[in-house]
Design a protein around this nucleic acid. Sequence first.
DNA 1: TTGTAGGCGTTATCAC
DNA 2: GTGATAACGCCTACAA
Lengths: 348, 348
Amino acid sequence: MAAKNREGGSQPTINDVARIAGVSKKTVSRVINGSPLLNEDTRKRVQEVIRELGYVPNPQARALALRRNFLIGLVHDNPNAQTVLKVQQGILEAIRDTEFELVVRPVDRGMVNMLDDIRQFLERQRLFGVVLMPPISENDSLAELCRQIGCRYVRMGSAELDDPTNMVASNDREAVRDAIRYLIGEGHRRIGFVSGPHGFRSALERRLGFEEALEEADLKLPRSMVADGNYTFESGLLAAERLLDLSPRPTAIFASNDEMATGVLQAARRRGMDVPRDLSIVGFDDTPIASHIWPPLTTVRWPIATMARSAALKLTVSVTEGEQEVDEPSMFLSTLIRRGSVAAPPHN
Amino acid sequence: MAAKNREGGSQPTINDVARIAGVSKKTVSRVINGSPLLNEDTRKRVQEVIRELGYVPNPQARALALRRNFLIGLVHDNPNAQTVLKVQQGILEAIRDTEFELVVRPVDRGMVNMLDDIRQFLERQRLFGVVLMPPISENDSLAELCRQIGCRYVRMGSAELDDPTNMVASNDREAVRDAIRYLIGEGHRRIGFVSGPHGFRSALERRLGFEEALEEADLKLPRSMVADGNYTFESGLLAAERLLDLSPRPTAIFASNDEMATGVLQAARRRGMDVPRDLSIVGFDDTPIASHIWPPLTTVRWPIATMARSAALKLTVSVTEGEQEVDEPSMFLSTLIRRGSVAAPPHN
DNA sequence: TTGTAGGCGTTATCAC
DNA sequence: GTGATAACGCCTACAA
């Protein structure tokens, strides 16, 4: 009963191919995995049979034998829907037409045993690799965990968190510095800043960019010009209300992401202020909403999808492209997009 | 060499449990799968060992033996990021703390061999089940395909697309009818409609709701009051420009989703119109943007996340809850959320 | 260059 | 109730 003559609707197995091609399973296996030591004729014959049968290796069996699944995990605790989706799109683009699939795994950063949870996930599913999204990607223990259990990983972040093979980053600090320089260039001297949440590296980097630009220009601003936010619309709105209550109030506000910038815009509107006449606003991300609100938002375009695509390629390229190791870049530049929400300050 | 004394960091297997508990593999297997015919003492003893060892069954081996993976697929071709992400969240909520994982699979509806592509995906990964998102969920051949290859499925849609076990739906038509009734009740007589793309059931249902409400109220509107859109911001903007060029122009516009409604708002603004004084706007979805723009958008809340959660439960509940088959509902009601974008029409 | 034997960790069959 | 034994479909090691 070794060689059954597979009937019925089930898919062909390596045995079917071997039997029909008149070779052993192992030879078929070699063809599949592109082993170099193979008679050219044999290879062709086997490949022909594979094509005829429409044979495709069974991923479950492979996963069991290799102790490794062809699944890419996306681990994240990012609150921003747009960002998460862009990252997914980037990864999916990278693994399109490959044998890889994407498994999504949101985690709860508040949970005490979050790391255990992730470990379980990685170990049980035996993922081929994981893409770690910010802010959880900034957690060094998590990276260490991946290394320990032998799971490839790429961390996405707003700074160089790891060595280039395990990381893709954007230059948030510089990008924000440029944005603030631009505001200063337009004549603004009182610039408010709405920060991201404590503990986010992106929040820190953007804040540092802000401060660097001020220093460059010898602008000293009171601490009150910095208001805490947490990347949500509401927090942006509240922060702006605090900022706009100041006297003198800022003539421009930089919000550390677009969602908060939208909140700032809302706050201004509620006071009957006109943007950009009475207040200039700059955001960060260039999410769709940035160009869909009025006035369209001047913002920093963050190439998050590209970064994600590159992250996935770093994970998988050695498999799909042989060992040629096309060097994926690990640094991606954010750029300022000028739209309608910035103007020269009112001269009062 | 049958029973190795597992050392090193690898995870315990069913063999370890069996050896330590002094039973056979099969007995352990029975405990895991909750077989009814088992001595209570044996069960307890085995469970104790499982707990001590922290044993967890290997999903790859299971998948191979069962010819079925514990993966839930999400197949979609939906262009709206918010919607896709909400659906993911709903599914993830449903499978949280279960052995299931979520695999995301966007497809290209334009592709000629899309169905083959999906078939390959389902057959190769041997998914436990799939959630089909609109608009591709409306494709009957796809459902037929799932049935053929024995893959459970649940279709999400804006109407009853299938029998209740294989479907979750919302009552878009009624919901839009209510929304239009509301506009009429506020005094509007010239109501513009921005439709969704041709071929989307949701677009059709929303359109029918619009027409039913008009008929009820004996309102006859010229065809020109209906403008085609495709669920994007830009299409909403263009459609609104056409509508606002009419003479007399509409005093209210219903857009078939929030993104287009935002485009309508933008178009109005560009003409210096005040919303809602000069134009009332109603959207559909209640995405975050609806409450983040000014004025906040009156819209229909579409319980898409809840629907997705329910869809995933329909797929998995028989496994996680034994056979009790908690009846998940298959119809979910959309409701009108009144915010600031609607007022009585200007009396000119 | 190719084949044989055995293992990956689970479930199914069918005796006892 | 429980346990050998054989799948499941692939891969690795070693032999030929």
